[in-house]
C-alpha cells in the first residue's frame, strides 16, 4: 500500500510543484503572482480536450496548441490584471487575478459545458505492474515530467541567454536593465511561462481525473500552499515542497482517512509558517529602513 500511496503522492505532488514553480517564477521576477493559477491549469486541460477530442487533432499539435493558449492567457493576465496595479504600487493585483479566475472559470462553464469529461491518454489505457502494485504508466511518468521540467527550467535559466536575462532580472533588476534586458518583457514572459506550467499540470492530471471548469480551484490553492510551504523565493524549494505536500496528502488519505487530508495538510502549512515564517527553503528579506 505504501508504494501505491507514494506513487500517487509523487504524481500529485510533482503537479503541485510544477504549478508552485509557476507562482515562484512570477514572484521572483515581479513580486506578484497570478492567483488564478488554478484556472490556467483548467484552461490547459480544457483546451487540450477541445483540440484533441472535440476537434480530433493529433496530440503533437493539440498539446502545443493548448500550451500556447495558456501562454497567451498568462500574457493577458499580466497585461490586464497585474501590470496596471503593479505600476501604481498597489497590491490589488491579488484581488484582480482572483476575479479574473472567477470570470474564466465561468466562461468555460458556459462554453465548454457543465459536465466533467474524460481526457483519454495512451498512458491510462491499461495499468502496469510496478513494485508489486498496479499503476497507470501516466502516474509514473508525471513525476518524471515534473522534475524534468523543473530541471529544464534550471538549465534554461543557467544556460540560455534569455534564461540568464531572467535570472539577472530577479537578482539585480536595475543592473539587468543596464545590460540591455527589458525587464517588463521578462515579467510578461514569466507570467506566460507560469501559465504554461499550470497548463502542463492540467494536461497531465486530466487523464487521471477529469476535465471540468471547476477542476483548477482546489488544485490552485494547494499549489499555492506548496509554494508558500517551500518559501516562494526558492525554485527547487517550491518543487520539493510540492512533492512533500502531495505525499503528506496521500499518506494522510491512506493511513488516517481522506476526510482528514485537508485538515492535516493545511495545518502543516500553518505550523510550518509559525516556525519558519519564510517557508522551508525561503530566505528572509532584509528589512530596509
Amino acid at each position: 500500500m505504501i508504494v501505491s500511496t507514494l506513487i500517487t503522492g509523487l504524481a500529485l505532488g510533482s503537479m503541485y510543484g510544477l504549478m508552485a514553480l509557476g507562482f515562484h517564477i512570477t514572484y521572483a521576477v515581479s513580486k506578484t503572482v497570478n492567483f488564478s493559477q488554478g484556472s490556467s491549469m483548467m484552461f490547459g486541460a480544457v483546451m487540450g480536450y477541445t483540440f484533441m477530442v472535440t476537434l480530433g487533432w493529433p496530440f503533437w499539435i493539440g498539446i502545443p496548441a493548448a500550451l500556447a493558449c495558456c501562454a497567451v492567457l498568462g500574457l493577458v493576465v499580466e497585461r490586464l490584471l497585474v501590470r496596471p496595479f503593479a505600476a501604481r504600487g498597489s497590491d490589488a493585483w491579488l484581488m484582480a487575478t482572483v476575479a479574473g479566475g472567477i470570470v474564466l472559470d465561468n466562461v468555460v462553464l458556459f462554453t465548454f459545458g457543465k459536465e466533467p469529461r474524460s481526457l483519454p491518454s495512451p498512458f491510462t489505457e491499461s495499468a502496469v505492474e510496478f513494485l508489486g502494485t498496479g499503476a497507470y504508466p501516466l502516474q509514473l511518468i508525471i513525476p518524471v515530467v515534473g522534475l524534468a521540467i523543473a530541471l529544464g527550467l534550471t538549465l534554461v535559466t543557467t544556460r540560455t541567454k534569455l534564461g540568464k536575462a531572467m535570472l539577472a532580472s530577479v537578482q539585480r533588476p536595475e543592473a539587468a536593465r543596464l545590460t540591455g534586458v527589458n525587464t517588463q518583457t521578462v515579467i510578461a514572459a514569466s507570467f506566460a511561462i507560469s501559465a504554461v506550467f499550470a497548463g502542463v499540470a492540467g494536461l497531465l492530471i486530466a487523464p487521471l481525473f477529469n476535465v471540468s471548469s471547476g477542476m483548477g480551484l482546489i488544485f490552485g490553492i494547494k499549489a499555492f500552499a506548496a509554494a508558500i510551504l517551500g518559501g516562494i523565493s526558492s525554485a527547487w524549494g517550491v518543487m520539493i515542497a510540492g512533492i512533500l505536500y502531495g505525499c503528506i496528502e496521500a499518506l494522510t488519505t491512506a493511513y488516517i482517512g481522506s476526510s482528514y487530508t485537508q485538515i492535516v495538510s493545511f495545518s502543516v502549512v500553518i505550523l510550518v509558517l509559525v516556525t519558519v515564517p519564510n517557508g522551508l527553503f525561503g530566505r528572509a528579506e532584509l528589512k530596509k529602513v
Binding site: 500529485l12 502494485t133 487521471l208 482546489i218 493511513y255 481522506s258
Partner: peptide
C-alpha cells in the same frame, strides 16, 4: 471506506478492503 469528491486515487482504501 470513504471516498472524497476530489480523490484522484482510491487504491489505498481499496487495498485495505482487499486485504
Amino acid at each position: 471506506e470513504r471516498v472524497e469528491a476530489n480523490d484522484i486515487d482510491v487504491v489505498p482504501q481499496l487495498t485495505r478492503l482487499k486485504e
